[in-house]
Amino acid sequence: MAKTVLVVEDNELNLKLFCDLLRAHGFAVEPVRDGREAVARAREVTPDLIVMDIQMPHVTGYELILELKQDEALRHIPIMAVTAYAGREDEERIRAAGANAYVSKPITLARFMAAVSQLV
């Protein structure tokens, strides 16, 4: 059975890229365009991994990570942040919030998939 990845990304092109790439590598994908829907969707599908942008409208990736990690049913799910924030302090802040991995944009396919493989 395919592992399921919840992809939270407000940019349509990035969402399509991440979903297509994951599907091409045999993953089942659940796309979410709005961080406000991510926790409810995660509860519905209980994904094996959550891939998310950090800079989103309405709910930041930091807020979303904290909410997911405070939820008893979801805190065990690894989170991979994919973001244009590329500074060392940004990575430290993202990991401190609870993300298990960090990939900066623009992504390389090999780095993206290597990070996914380490988490599932």
Rank of each mutant, 00 (worst) to 15 (best):
M1I: 11
T4V: 12
V7S: 02
V7E: 02
E9R: 10
D10I: 03
E12V: 14
L15D: 07
K16D: 15
L17P: 01
C19M: 06
L21S: 11
L22Q: 00
R23Q: 14
A24E: 10
H25L: 06
H25N: 15
F27Y: 15
F27S: 06
F27V: 08
A28G: 13
V29K: 15
P31M: 14
G35W: 10
R36T: 12
A38H: 05
A40H: 05
R41L: 11
R41Y: 04
V45L: 04
T46Y: 06
T46M: 06
L49F: 09
I50F: 06
V51T: 09
V51Y: 00
M52E: 06
I54C: 12
P57W: 06
P57V: 12
H58S: 15
H58A: 15
T60H: 04
T60W: 11
Y62L: 08
L64Y: 05
I65M: 09
L68Q: 00
L68H: 00
Q70S: 15
D71Y: 03
L74S: 10
I79R: 02
V82H: 10
V82Q: 08
T83C: 07
A86S: 12
G87S: 15
G87R: 03
G87Q: 04
R88S: 00
E89P: 01
E91M: 02
E92N: 11
A96P: 00
A99Y: 01
Y102D: 08
P106H: 07
I107W: 04
L109I: 14
R111L: 12
M113K: 09
M113T: 01
M113I: 11
A114I: 01
A115Y: 04
A115V: 06
S117W: 12
V120P: 09
